[in-house]
Write a protein that binds this DNA or RNA. Structure first.
Lengths: 250, 250
DNA sequence: CTTGACCTTGACGTAACGTCAACGTCTCTA
DNA sequence: TAGAGACGTTGACGTTACGTCAAGGTCAAG
């Protein structure tokens, strides 16, 4: 038997056979005077055994270990471990398909794949279009959202619910407009401190508490720096003053 | 923000971020005078979006296509296709775990992973140890077994059942011994033709029919050549004569 | 001024083969 | 007997999504 026939017999390519030779998974057979590998039935059996293990999902390295280890107890260990690994993969696929299903069901309503559907709607409603500050705020919130686990996200949504009421939304839009208006103002402008106080008053109590608390945690405390570094001096000052106000209130 | 902070924020490594730059999945930000990449919140949002799609199982190439395509209809297509792919993977894992389970359940009884457990037992019983001919025959049969689908394998097992009866096994062992005995004989030896006739008589009718039929099929017809090429001239002659006898009987 | 943490580009390594390239061998046929 | 076509040989690069050095530059703190 030459290599093509062996490969066809076992259902692999000749490249695969040579690869297994190279890795030492299959012994090199005798050569004909012309240099061709000459296989016998035994080689086909050995190759078929390697394929069986490979199709179970073992890596070629693992297969070599198993074959070297006199096929005793090593095999059970590896197979058991492999089964556990497959179980994990099953769970992972299940989770991914679940996320896919909600995404697909919602894709028509909400073409923004950045963020969970419900939270995406919320962000979309909350802020007026065409505002640089609103864009930044939306980015920050969607970032926080993507980094959160489902429980934390639910908590986050709950905190925002008071702001989705029509009256609150109108007040929010007005505040956003004032933030845009002072973009070029002096940080000492009297409108700056006034806006900070009004913003602090506008935030629901729970949200204010969460924001203050987050400032002391290394992982979440950076949001204020991140935002101020992308705002004008006056706008940054508004945020800093607002946080000060929130702290005093706590 | 510098690259390390961005990466930590989104939960990836800096290498990943640079990789995405290289592939054009994430725009290169401005550089500081020192040559450092300087990121803004928007970049974190873009990176998070890429990660979301990647974690769903899209390849980076697919992600680039999706992002380039104005996020319209392309996304639905890819996601639907991905879901089908995941479903197939689930089935594959399920099948592998099933095979694993039977292997694990049987591994103590039968340490031979070359062949299905039940068929392995059968082969082990059928032939005496220490016979070159028996070894070759076992190899051939296990090869045929690994190449067969479950239905064909069941059929195969059924054909062998008559040979597992104690009397039949004793007769089979005697025939194997005779085959070994004539290894060095002349192909014209009278024991050769006698053994061929006795072998033909020993085979169950169904098996004989299957063997004769297989000779005319390109895929399965090679078994005779494979075996004779690994036997002594006299033994090969026995097989050829046996096949002739079977053909005449049909 | 040094240290240490962070950044830069460049390049090789991973798993399991697929896919040329450049060239020899074998078998069949004209 | 010569040529064609099928098949074999080794060698090396491509694939995926980064991990992991290497060799060096930048920056804040002590």
């Amino acid at each position: 038997m030459r290599i093509g026939e062996l490969a066809a017999l076992v259902g692999v390519t000749t490249r695969t056979v040579r690869h297994y030779h190279h890795l030492g998974l299959l012994p090199e057979p005798e050569r004909t005077p012309g240099g061709y590998r000459e296989y016998r039935v035994r080689d086909a059996v050995l190759l078929a055994r390697v394929r069986r293990l490979a199709e179970l999902g073992l890596s070629l390295d693992e297969i070599r270990d198993v074959l070297a280890d006199d096929e005793g107890r090593e095999l059970r260990e590896v197979l058991t471990e492999l089964d556990a690994d497959l179980a994990r993969q099953q769970d992972a696929i299940l989770a991914r398909r679940a996320r896919l299903a909600t995404l697909l069901a919602d894709a028509d309503l909400n073409p923004d794949t950045t963020v969970a559907p419900d939270f995406g709607d919320l962000l979309h409603d909350l802020h007026p279009a065409g505002s640089a500050f609103a864009a930044l705020d939306r980015d920050m919130l969607s970032l926080i959202d993507t980094g959160a686990d489902p429980a934390a996200r639910e908590q986050l949504m709950a905190m925002f619910r008071p702001l989705t009421d029509p009256d609150a939304r109108a007040r929010g839009h007005a505040l956003t407009a004032r933030m845009d208006a002072i973009a070029g103002a002096d940080p000492a402008d009297s409108r700056v401190s006034a806006l900070a106080v009004d913003l602090a008053a506008h935030l629901p109590a729970e949200m204010a508490a969460a924001m203050v608390a987050s400032l002391d945690e290394a992982e979440t405390g950076r949001w204020l720096d991140l935002m101020t570094s992308e705002l004008t001096p006056a706008q940054a000052e508004v945020l800093r003053l607002m946080v000060t106000t929130l702290k005093e209130r706590a």
